[in-house]
Nucleic acid binder design. Structure first.
Lengths: 227, 227
DNA sequence: ACCTGAACACCGTTCAAGT
DNA sequence: ACCTGAACACCGTTCAAGT
């Protein structure tokens, strides 16, 4: 009572970002508008602009806040162990904060912790003896998987989007290959069209396939093509 | 003159979609709002809703319109040639319509031509003797690269976003690995931080690395892990 | 120094009316 | 059948004012 008399908790960058992350976790990224966030904090929209320059800076701040859950780069165990572990660690963050994916995809985020993760992975390749040229190439081949997600081909992550039996039948008629391959998905909660495919095993399969390729090129002494 | 008296060209779904694609090509995806598009067509916003149900359907229509530039699946030359050629063909579309990437990424588009492309690639794997289980796995490993783009790690595609010398120096200090590897990028228009890396050679490198991995698993008679 | 109120220039979309 | 006008419920952000 005493402290609430006109002295409602002061706003701060920390409070704003924490509320934004909580709002995105609870209600999805689309719910994170400056106006809605302000309302959540019991404040007028313009009050936020004293703590973040604009909405882009808010999103950047949210990214760095959740990437702060990352541990420091491991220096033991060789490049492959280090990179594999680190990417799977980012994946855990991704699973806790599903909105992270869209934020990283939609904008060219270059915040300190984003650059820090890239630098750590690049550093692990170089420490493992990869040439700078090969490192550059494998980083491109790594692509967005360095952030712990694969592109969902059929599934938008919403269980409610599973097709109806009629839709599934129509799909099987016009796209027999999709239907056949989707049917073999080995997941417990599967429907006719693959759903929830981006599980841990699937992600690790793709990750290891890439890492195998990188190891092979490295072992073969890959050099950039002449021109 | 005569025909313009009260009989301005009738709107149609085709005209709406063509204008939307042209607007996105010319001014970027953010310029494509229902209101702006209507203005471009000399019509009131609500007139569009007779031809597309809502904005999502407009975006789907735009996707299918540009994917219509794809040729039919090749049936000669083996799975690898077929898939490689088809993905590089999608990449050409992507280069002509840079907004396509964001539309495919941001939404779970499942239009006929999107499904048709997936079905064609899956069909090529199966025709090449891949088991359904392996096909399912490699499709996930393929990820968004099946749409002809790689995630840009540093570059948002805007030449104006190249860092200033001060920024580059700061980056080199805090992120030495990024700076070292970015510096070796073999592109003509390079700056200190890699820019324009997603060129044809880089894309084909990543694509071939994946295809190599797929071929190796297939040749080794890969079977799903027991559990 | 920090928060507020009113306003500006936008969005997508509904609903009732015009021709 | 097709287009219009006005309105609703939102956006991000600027600017001048309050305390």
């Amino acid at each position: 009572m005493a402290s609430s008399t006109g002295t409602r908790d002061r706003l701060s960058r920390e409070r704003v970002l924490a509320a934004a992350v909580a709002l995105a976790d609870a209600s999805g990224l689309d719910a994170v508008s400056m106006r809605r966030l302000a309302q959540e904090l019991g404040v007028v929209p313009m009050a936020l602009y004293k703590h973040v320059a604009d909405k882009d800076e808010l999103l950047d701040g949210m990214v760095d806040r959740v990437l702060g859950e990352l541990s420091l780069p491991e220096l033991t165990g060789g490049w492959r162990t280090a990179i594999r572990g680190r990417v799977l660690e980012v994946r855990q963050i991704q699973l806790r904060h599903p909105w992270l994916r869209r934020v990283l995809e939609s904008r060219a985020t270059r915040t300190p912790l984003v650059l820090g993760h890239l630098d750590a992975v690049i550093g692990a390749f170089r420490a493992g003896g990869f040439s700078d040229a090969l490192t550059h190439h494998v980083m491109h081949a790594f692509g967005s998987r360095i952030w712990g997600f694969t592109q969902e081909l059929f599934d938008d992550g919403d269980p409610a989007s599973a097709p109806s039996p009629e839709q599934a039948a129509a799909l099987a008629q016009y796209f027999p290959n999709i239907a056949a391959v989707a049917a073999v998905a080995g997941h417990d909660d599967d429907t006719v069209v693959a759903h929830g495919c981006d599980d841990q095993a699937e992600f690790e399969f793709a990750l290891d396939l890439l890492l195998d390729g990188f190891a092979r090129l490295h072992a073969a002494g890959w050099v950039p093509p002449q021109r």
